[in-house]
Design a protein around this nucleic acid. Structure first.
Lengths: 131, 131
DNA sequence: CGAATACAGACTTTATTCATCTATAATAAC
DNA sequence: GTTATTATAGATGAATAAAGTCTGTATTCG
């Protein structure tokens, strides 16, 4: 089990936006260059981030991607779930009478992780980079 | 990102062993029947559990799988890592100067989950089933 | 208009998961 | 010691998902 590389790209792209370009839009071209990733592939992730409401896109010349106002509140969990989806990482495939006790434990464990990822904001890291 | 079905099978197999047959060995055939899974596939997972030191295997007639002595101490994490491996679920693919701050956060989050899974023992569930 | 940008969908390639089959090794029962 | 019963190992195949490319369309600035 592993997070997809897409999540890795998305997190780094977000950190770049928060860190170096919080106001003016950045094109996929530039972002892809900075990260050393292909434009077309990166754009898929950015589109997901737009749909998740984390960033804003501007079409046309001088367009690109810009953070939403609420930058300070964007958490790791927001970015990860935008890319990976929100489905539980464990799904019991058996037919128990009631709920599966095993699943309950694993899901609760997952919540521990999510709670932590929710408390960590991308902006915190940006500060750390600069400081 | 999802845990493999193999993990699901392994956890249920372990619960069965703890719950209904803590002393005498159970064959793959019976286990597979109980779980409604193919023998050959299930046996791969059981072999992994053996190599991880969680259960004991006995060849030959009337053989099968039996729990190790330390049954009370077998945690969810033990079983999951026996199947999924112990690699981190996030691996930054970029070349930073030092460590990747993003990776540090995600790995720390993962530790939160693992700590929880380590504290939950299979035997606790067995009690819950019976009680 | 024309260039620069994002967006969407089809498509390909590669990797992983899921599963089966076959053969080998170990051991208990007879 | 032979036979039946069990686990183990490895090769193989099918299905699914991840990673990445290509092409075309829509939007907007100059």
């Amino acid at each position: 089990m592993k997070y997809s590389q897409a999540t890795d790209y998305a997190l780094h792209a977000m950190l770049y936006l928060v860190d170096e370009a919080p106001d003016k839009p950045v094109s996929v071209q530039l972002l892809a260059e900075k990260l050393g990733v292909s434009q077309t592939y990166l754009s898929k992730m950015l589109t997901k981030l737009v749909k998740a409401g984390l960033i804003h896109s501007i079409s046309g010349a001088n367009g690109g991607y810009r953070l939403k106002r609420s930058q300070e509140d964007i958490s790791f969990l927001d970015v990860i779930q935008a890319i990976e989806g929100t489905a539980s990482l464990f799904e019991c495939s058996f037919n128990h009478r009631n709920e599966c006790l095993i699943q309950q434990v694993v899901v609760e464990a997952e919540l521990q992780m999510e709670q932590f990822l929710k408390s960590k904001k991308i902006a915190d890291l940006a500060k750390q980079v600069k400081g």
